[in-house]
Design a protein around this nucleic acid. Structure first.
Lengths: 210, 210
DNA sequence: AAAGTCAGTGAACAACTGTACGCAAAGTCT
DNA sequence: AGACTTTGCGTACAGTTGTTCACTGACTTT
């Protein structure tokens, strides 16, 4: 069924990639709901109608971008979550990992930050779904940690969501910081570390019920 | 200088309001960078060219919306911040206040959440600026609290930003919850309260330096 | 009462949009 | 080798967009 992906499929994938990349580039300075199909094909250098061979609409392309941007992030989540060591070390390691990802895929990060609350319903839904998966993974990791012994399941999920949100806030802050001076980036990283540390302290002294 | 604002100016203000409201309505299901000038005037029932009598462009209208949506929020910030009482009471009061605001001005809240990372640079800048003002106010309030005695100024601002971010996260979560069942809303409120409480606990046990 | 201001009009413009249709040509299968 | 499939092309259409211009008519000022 899958020898080496015939030259036919290969070319198709290539065009598809080009469309996705061009869209991602254009989305650095606008949002998905204003992105035109023709705009994308023009940037790639193919006829407008070629678009339909790959996506049913721009919204469809948006969903594909979500899966690409967030689907590939699961390994990183697991890496962060399974990192051993002292609390502060873990936080620093996690923020470094996030910063590295932002440097490597800035357009993906910007896209997610922008479209998470953006104007396209299905894309918002796709992002929400992926983030819920992340929160689930983080919660499971938190659950298998002695610190979480007295915790109720509900509170664990709450904390996991807080961590996921912080991850996004940090990523988006880093993105905004690349424009400003070089020192700005370090300031953002330091701030992110301290936010995470404060949350960690809250976690350590948490008392359920209330 | 301001007798009773002649019938001329009054009518102008009325149309301006209509434009802002129509735009706000249209922005519930799309983002600013895809909002057309003609779309807005059509919704109001005036000629496209009338738009220019009030705003230079749609971006301009966006900035006006930011000032309207966030400028009017300063009193609420001060109310939250100056509320006295036990920690948990304050948190519950604050979340209630936020929830009330979301109920009263859902379109404004949606607009801010959407355009904070949206595709229009000047609007992002305007929002960022207002949020920085909020963070400053919160920091000042935190500074004049005995709990913050050992705190460095930098850390106080960090905490203030964390609170402001949480406010937005809560507001946007409440917005998404109105569609789902009635119980969903209470769940979101409970979650928000616990997040804020956890942060408060982290604050109480914070140790600077490190 | 006359002169001036100015919010809103309506027609016209070039440029753009998404989508439908049939065609070409290259890859794949029998 | 021949039949089939399918990616991409070109043309065309109706509808939309932002912006310009000269205009009307109600309100203000003198």
């Amino acid at each position: 069924m899958s020898h080496t992906l015939g030259a036919r499929q290969a070319q198709k994938q290539k065009t598809r990639r080009a469309l996705l990349d061009a869209a991602l580039g254009l989305l650095e300075e606008q949002s998905l709901s204003s992105l035109g199909l023709r705009e994308v094909t023009r940037a790639v250098g193919v006829a407008p109608t070629a678009f339909y061979r790959h996506f049913r609409s721009v919204e469809d392309l948006g969903v594909a971008l979500v899966e690409e941007a967030l689907g590939s992030l699961h390994p990183m989540i697991r890496t962060i979550v399974s990192t051993t060591g002292d609390g502060d070390e873990r936080v620093a390691r996690a923020v470094e990992l996030i910063a590295g990802h932002v440097d490597a895929y800035p357009a993906h990060v910007r896209f997610i930050a922008r479209e998470r609350h953006g104007g396209v319903r299905v894309v918002r839904g796709a992002i929400r779904e992926q983030l819920a998966l992340f929160a689930g993974e983080v919660r499971d990791a938190l659950a298998s940690d002695p610190v979480s012994l007295g915790w109720e399941p509900e509170d664990l999920l709450m904390l996991a969501q807080l961590y996921v949100d912080q991850m996004l806030v940090t990523a988006s802050a880093l993105l905004e910081a690349v424009g400003d001076g070089a020192g700005e980036r370090e300031r953002v990283v330091r701030d992110a570390v301290r936010r995470m540390r404060l949350i960690g302290i809250g976690r350590a002294h948490w008392v359920g019920g209330g």
